[in-house]
Design a protein around this nucleic acid. Structure first.
Lengths: 196, 196
DNA sequence: AAAATACACTAACTAACGTTAGCATTTAAG
DNA sequence: CTTAAATGCTAACGTTAGTTAGTGTATTTT
């Protein structure tokens, strides 16, 4: 069928990963086949294995790329010297922008991690748990400082993370507002609530 | 292996559907196999087909059961004569309780509908779109009545529905607060926001 | 008790999947 | 220009999947 086309900077492996993320998002990891991915990449299925070890390796890479990116950002934000609300808002905005700019990867990482195999599965679960715990700690700090009302911090984290992952419906919707407007609306609603 | 055990009221088909929902939730629709489901039900795989037409029929039933339940509730709530905020809160609580009481079904309906085949796929998509539109209309009514701040209504719907579907993490977590507390916290955060 | 229905079993089919082996061809290095 | 490495292809493998056919047994109906 021909060679895999790369755009100057990207390796062939990176091209495959990118297309895989889009396919896994669309069909789900299990329902997506290597022959389909090969078609999209423009190559025969067997040729993919010159670049990758297995289908699962693709999922591993996608999931950990995303997880590591968010972990780094959290490190950065925790170190800042601002109010708790400001930190939370910053993290929230980072999540929203991540969802807007790296949609496929983030979506797959969020919804398909179940299909990782060990030890990657346990590793990612541990990492995600730790992330949520640190996020919750940020909220609890805000409660102690009386910036935030007394609510259950893990519940707040759960709401925010899942609300953001809902941007997929926004992606699919026809009459959509701009990314920036979406971000402002989400932050407003989550920080200040619906009630006027 | 033996007959399927039913509890007085439930037909054998209902038993299968119930177990299927739990299995599809745990593994995902595509990754769950009929042989596995048969094992759980306590029967050989082929025997399932005395009760159901296909694997996909199970998914159809699960998805439309859930969708119809929410549609009915929305009909009911729209007809009430209260404030918009009260209507939204009521719907929110219904969603939260649905997630707590029929977790497997709701979860599967939310995450696995992609694997429906036509015409069910289009039907459900249409129904869900209609639901979100009517939910958004409730919010817009609230904005007109000045009960709710000026935000993008579809975004608010997106946030609320996905926040609720996040209750899965709550289900998985060890140190969890009670269902009632969870409900109160979610409603508080979404109606009134984080900020004190 | 006999007849009809509901339900379960074994065995097997076809299709699709991820992946490997072995060989050909293109690209890059010496 | 020759050689080595990278990358592609065809063919095929072993598994697993959903499902059907055909047959026997339990349950319900008459």
């Amino acid at each position: 069928m021909g060679r895999i086309k790369t755009e100057s900077n990207a390796s062939r492996k990176e091209v495959i990963i990118e297309k895989a993320a889009a396919l896994f998002k669309e069909k789900g990891f299990k329902a997506a086949s290597m022959r389909e991915l090969a078609d999209i990449v423009g190559v025969e299925a067997a040729s993919l294995y010159n670049h990758i070890k297995s289908k699962n390796e693709l999922l591993n890479i996608i999931c950990f790329d995303v997880a590591n990116r968010y972990m780094h950002k959290l490190d950065e934000i925790e170190a800042e010297k601002t109010t708790s609300i400001a930190k939370i808002e910053k993290l929230l905005r980072y999540h929203i922008e991540g969802m807007l700019n790296h949609f496929d990867e983030v979506y797959v990482s969020d919804r398909e991690w179940k299909h990782l195999d060990n030890p990657y599965l346990s590793n990612l679960q541990t990492q995600r748990r730790a992330y949520r715990k640190r996020f919750a700690a940020l909220i609890e700090e805000g409660i102690r400082r009386k910036e935030i009302k007394k609510i259950d911090a893990p519940t707040a984290v759960l709401i925010m993370l899942h609300a953001i992952s809902g941007i997929e419906s926004w992606h699919r919707s026809k009459q959509k507002i701009s990314g920036k407007e979406l971000e402002e609306n989400m932050v407003t609603i989550m920080i200040d609530g619906l009630r006027k």
